[in-house]
């Protein structure tokens, strides 16, 4: 994606990324008994990882990971193959669709369901990059639940003392399963924790992709220039339950309505129309093209050869 987030190519790329993420989530939510959608969080994933270039590492959070896979150049065939356990799955079905990624494209796969190890081993990717004199930056995303984990704090501290080229992004959807993060965090922002480790840090509007992109670029530029790690707490909202069977009765109607009005895709469409004079027709054409592409690829992959013991 073009680095200048305000260029028209960058805008379309961001829009398409958010749509791919949303539409894959919708399909999975509809077809799978169990699914962990990132509805409402697309501006964080697509904004935070959107400026990475070849040679950089992406360490996505599991929720919304598919948008990051797409940004890093995985094809829809590979992403959907991972979801449907078809032979286009990069791991040949050994990992779930949202854990897979492709390490050849410098996406760290999640080989354990435990959250935290990827944040800490992702820190190691950056440590090796620094030692070897490379210019790669590592972007590491994690949820507000993971933010309270001891190992994350160990890693943020080490990232600072070793001056590692990392952008930490808290994909702060305010819930870990049913637990409200405000109940379990000693600060009202994860950025305050990071400040305690002497990292430049800020809380931003995670539903505004332009704000996320700008904050991410600042951190990535600092990391690439040798200025060490940055943490961005991107405040967003999980529009729905932890997984498809969770009706999220613990969320209030009031907060749901409030955040639905801040849907990052709708907001970005408004931005495109109002600030960039892009027509509704053009926007709908892109939306329809992405929708068609996702569904056609889905059906094609569904009909393709499944992973089996014989083709491992």
């Amino acid at each position: 994606m073009p680095k200048d987030e305000t260029s028209i190519d960058a805008l379309w790329h961001m829009y398409e990324g958010m749509l791919v993420s949303r539409m894959l989530d919708e399909k999975c939510f509809q077809d799978f008994a169990e699914w962990y959608p990132a509805f409402g969080e697309e501006a964080v994933t697509i904004g935070a990882f959107g400026s990475l270039v070849d040679g950089d590492f992406a360490v996505p959070h599991y929720r919304g990971s598919m948008g990051v896979f797409w940004l890093r150049g995985m094809s829809l065939e590979e992403i959907i193959g991972g979801l449907l356990f078809r032979t286009s799955s990069v791991s040949l079905g050994r990992l779930s669709g949202l854990h897979g990624g492709d390490f050849e494209k410098q996406i760290l796969p999640s080989v354990t369901n435990v959250l935290g190890p990827n944040v800490s081993s992702g820190t190691g990717l950056a440590m090796a990059e620094r030692i070897r004199g490379g210019s790669g930056v590592t972007v590491i995303a994690f949820g507000d639940g993971t933010a309270a984990l001891g190992t994350l704090h160990e890693s943020v501290n080490m990232a600072k003392i070793y001056k590692l080229p990392i952008l930490f992004v808290c994909q702060n959807n305010q819930y870990s399963i049913s637990s409200r993060s405000s109940k379990f965090h000693s600060w009202d922002s994860v950025a305050s924790w990071a400040a305690g480790y002497n990292l430049p840090s800020s809380q931003i509007d995670g539903n505004d992709i332009m704000a996320v992109r700008a904050a991410a670029n600042e951190g990535i530029d600092r990391a690439r220039a040798g200025g060490g790690p940055t943490l961005v707490d991107a405040l967003t909202f999980r529009m729905g339950g932890h997984l498809s069977t969770d009706k999220a009765q613990y969320q209030s109607d009031e907060e749901r309505v409030k955040w639905e009005s801040k849907d990052p895709i709708k907001r970005f469409e408004e931005y495109l129309q109002n600030s960039r004079q892009i027509s509704v027709t053009e926007i709908s054409q892109v939306r329809e093209r992405v929708q068609r592409n996702v569904l056609e690829t889905w059906n094609k992959v569904l009909a393709s050869e499944a992973v089996s013991l014989a083709n491992q």
């Binding site: 081993s121 190691g124 160990e154």
Partner: peptide, 16 residues
């Protein structure tokens, strides 16, 4: 910080 350090080393081993 044993956990963080072991994970750090694992990540380093993944990057050359």
């Amino acid at each position: 910080a044993e956990q963080g350090v072991v994970a750090l080393g694992i990540g380093m081993s993944l990057n050359g």
